[in-house]
């Protein structure tokens, strides 16, 4: 029987034959993630944006800043709203008008992780205490869904925030915040700019994640969509740069996870965090050189 036909008809046996030799169908060893690239500044009209690719899974994240009045209980804090979209182009399973099941779940997980990891101090998003603060809208679009969606989404979100530049604004007479464009910055300074120059957010610790699939006693790091659909038990570990556990998510699935398996996954994640940190730093320094 041809290889392709065998792969379609008996996918589990096909993958298990590979696992016996400690390799996966695309040639990777079990613990290695796919090639990852990050490109910052993909969307020119947004305040911060990034395009992250893990293997074929592609995510485009963009941050747009708008002004809002802060809540009464926290007059010094801005707000972040995260939304994850899976448009119909990304996968044959998504139909227009019927949103993917995974989308709201990933949105909620991303929101929890970004807010609880302390990556961004909301006080940095404040403009005029009690009157105006930034609302950061983070929109992440999945352009190609090929497994490990959460990892790619988190990576693109973190990269977009690293690239974010807060524009210079000032308070005009009506009490509204107005963008100070480059032309009149030298000419007239009737209105004091609220923030001195375009600045970047100070990010404390960046969270990075790795999804692993557990099958019998094999642990496969960074599964593709095919592997995820066949071996349905997956475990996502999110660590931040100081190796604290931000989230460990194993949402059920047909297999059980032993403590030793969890420890192995955490070890794989620690390696992956170092790799991702390096890739992100390279991307940031490339941007600054330009």
């Amino acid at each position: 029987m041809e290889v392709d036909a065998f792969r379609r008809l008996f996918p589990l046996r096909f993958h298990e034959r590979h696992l016996l030799e400690s390799i996966r169908p695309d040639g990777r060893p079990l613990g290695r993630a796919r090639d990852t690239t990050i490109a910052l500044g993909a969307v020119a009209s947004a305040n911060g944006s990034a395009l992250a690719k893990i293997g074929c899974t592609t995510m485009l994240a963009a941050v747009k800043l708008e002004v809002m009045t802060p809540k009464a209980e926290s007059p010094d804090e801005g707000c972040i709203v995260i939304d994850f979209h899976m448009p119909p182009i990304c996968s044959p399973l998504v139909r227009p008008g019927r949103p993917a099941e995974a989308a709201p779940v990933i949105t909620k997980q991303l929101t929890d992780i970004i807010l609880s990891s302390g990556m961004i101090d909301l006080k940095e998003l404040s403009l005029v205490s009690g009157k105006a603060a930034w609302m950061a809208y983070l929109d992440i679009y999945c352009l190609d869904a090929d497994g490990a969606l959460f990892d790619a989404a988190l990576l693109s979100a973190v990269a977009a925030f690293s690239h974010l530049q807060i524009p210079v604004v000032s308070l005009n007479d009506n009490g509204r915040i107005v963008l100070l464009s480059e032309e009149n910055s030298g000419a007239m300074w009737e209105k004091e700019p609220v923030n001195k120059e375009k600045r970047k957010l100070k990010l404390d610790t960046l969270p990075f994640s790795l999804t692993c699939v557990l099958h019998k006693n094999y642990i496969l790091a960074d599964p593709s969509a095919e592997e995820e659909s066949i071996m349905e038990t997956y475990l996502t570990v999110v660590l931040d740069s100081s190796m604290q556990l931000v989230s460990l998510n194993k949402p059920g699935g047909p297999g059980l996870a032993q403590t030793s398996a969890i420890q192995d996954c955490v070890a794989l994640t620690i390696q992956r965090v170092k790799e991702l940190q390096k890739i992100l730093n390279e991307a940031i320094s490339d941007m600054e050189v330009d």
Partner: peptide, 25 residues
């Protein structure tokens, strides 16, 4: 013992160290 060792589901909220997680387990 080895069968009982396995967890079906685990969901965490908030930041903690890896050792703390295993303690909670």
């Amino acid at each position: 013992e080895s069968i009982e060792n396995g967890i079906i589901t685990s969901v965490t909220h908030g930041v903690m160290s890896v050792n703390n997680y295993f303690q909670c387990l």
